[in-house]
Design a protein around this nucleic acid. Structure first.
Lengths: 287, 287
DNA sequence: GGCCTGTGATACCCGGCGGGTATCACACGT
DNA sequence: ACGTGTGATACCCGCCGGGTATCACAGGCC
């Protein structure tokens, strides 16, 4: 009567994202007519119009937008339930209850802190096996939400910590990484304004959630790619201080005086009750 | 293949809570055999044993406990999606987009703050209709999670704020409420130790999540009931300062010097994106 | 204006599976 | 030995989710 099935949610989210029944059906690996029928049935059961279909296109009503947001959250929660249950089953299954933890880390960030954390935790008695999962830019939130990861290292203010419990680990400044040959590389310090409009050196743009912010700079999705472009004198980038670890000889790092400090947190789903996780967090706070 | 249906989650949670297929089936309004089959199928699909059935009873495996926790969260998220979507539909349906907000408040707490908040918000332009939903002791968390409420007033340290965004509104001390006739009522201040072992005046016990903490005091689930028992000289209770508003003539309030301060927060689900909610929060922070 | 194209909606059929009833298998009380 | 209460099995049926074919309709052509 009033209990949404996850199948219905999956269908609706697909349609709401594509805004096109045909494409949504294809994405779902099914034909279009049953999809149409399923959405109609969903609307009847909820007693609410979710989509406005005026021939040539579909758009979301207010209720539709609500269901898109809430439905995504619900779907994430159920897939998280499935994933975490499977992993828990592996643990208490064969070979004794060897717990495992999946830690999501932005690829290539803060090696040093990560190393210290993993070493310190491994020395703990009863330490679980920590699997490090490299994640794309700002993707850790989704990974925690849908159960791909149990815990993550996040960098405020880039990551949003809303909805998670977290603990502050480290604060650092930011630096501009320039070609060593560029005149500005000789400065002792710079400001954001200095680096954001250098005529011959546009700021690189990172992909966030699959799309790129507008601007003149090159589109980047790989750190080595970026490093190369900087070395070639084609772009600048702004990074937390710990990025100095991977600088090349052709790079120069210059501190930014007015960039907001970057705070590294360890974050986890608020409702977690895992002992292994608690141990890792305890270790982290003692660093 | 790997996508849990909410029906399966409902079934499993019922069995895991009852630890008995027959009772669980009854609670679900179905017969026992299909329930058994559904759980078996669920275990097969997850590739994990969830229940240990040794004749005469059922118990949870580690994976089962995981699925119980995560599954509850997922079920809450889907029922929240349904409820919020229905409400959003009512709003953008007939009579113009009149938004509504449901505010969960512990029954009978902090009248004064609540009044100020509602009055101030009602004076805002484009204020939504705020529906006040009285909730049992410490039940606000569940109400936010499953969509019965959009926002809640919570009292740390009694309510757990994990998983929600929140804003501090007010801090107050705690008082002991005694029968006016009792000798201790003459004191200017008291300590927790003073009131926790008065031989003839055991501390009242409140129901939390349906169960009562152990102890000698009377079991309470209603505020007037408690007030009456105090007036009769049968018990003491500890409350935030604002409880003075409902004291009777037969009651005396004595400040507690060592009780932790009670902090009232306004809290909401971390992923909310409602404009009306944002307005209410903005108003609250200006009080 | 006729026609094609692309959209979502409808009509109809079929197979699978969710659910029910009856029964079994087994461990415990007496 | 037998009754009792547990979960598991066997079997059947009706519904509903999904597929194919088709419709209805609005634009954009020439």
């Amino acid at each position: 009567m009033d209990t949404l099935e996850t199948r219905e949610l999956r269908y609706f989210v697909a349609v709401a994202e594509e805004l096109h029944f045909g494409r949504a059906a294809e994405r779902l690996g099914m034909a279009q007519p049953p999809l149409t029928r399923a959405i109609q049935q969903l609307e009847r059961r909820l007693g609410v119009r979710l989509l406005e279909r005026d021939r040539r296109g579909v758009s979301l009503t207010g209720a539709g937008e609500m269901l898109l947001h809430e439905g995504r959250a619900a779907l994430d929660a159920t897939t998280a339930a499935a994933r975490r249950t499977r992993r828990a089953g592996d643990a208490d299954g064969p070979g004794g209850p060897r717990n495992r933890l999946v830690l999501a880390v932005k690829a290539g960030a803060s090696h040093e802190l990560l190393h210290k954390l993993l070493d310190a935790y491994a020395a703990e008695p009863d330490a679980a096996v920590v699997e490090v999962l490299p994640s794309g830019t700002c993707e850790q939130e989704g990974m925690l939400r849908d159960g791909r990861a149990d815990v993550a290292l996040m960098h405020a203010p880039f990551n949003s910590l809303t909805g998670f419990d977290s603990q502050e680990l480290m604060t650092e400044g930011q630096i501009a990484i320039l070609p060593a040959s560029h005149p500005l590389a000789a400065q002792k310090t710079l400001t954001l304004a200095d680096v954001s409009d250098i005529p011959d050196l546009p700021l690189a743009r990172w992909a966030r959630h699959g799309t790129y912010p507008p601007g003149p700079g090159p589109e980047i999705h790989d750190q080595t790619q970026l490093a190369q472009l900087i070395a070639l004198g084609r772009t600048v980038a702004v990074f937390p201080d710990s990025a100095r670890a991977w600088l090349w000889a052709e790079h120069t790092a210059v501190p930014l005086t007015d960039a907001p400090p970057v705070v590294t947190h360890i974050a986890w789903p608020a409702h977690s009750r895992s002992l292994a996780l608690a141990g890792l967090i305890r270790t982290a706070t003692r660093l």
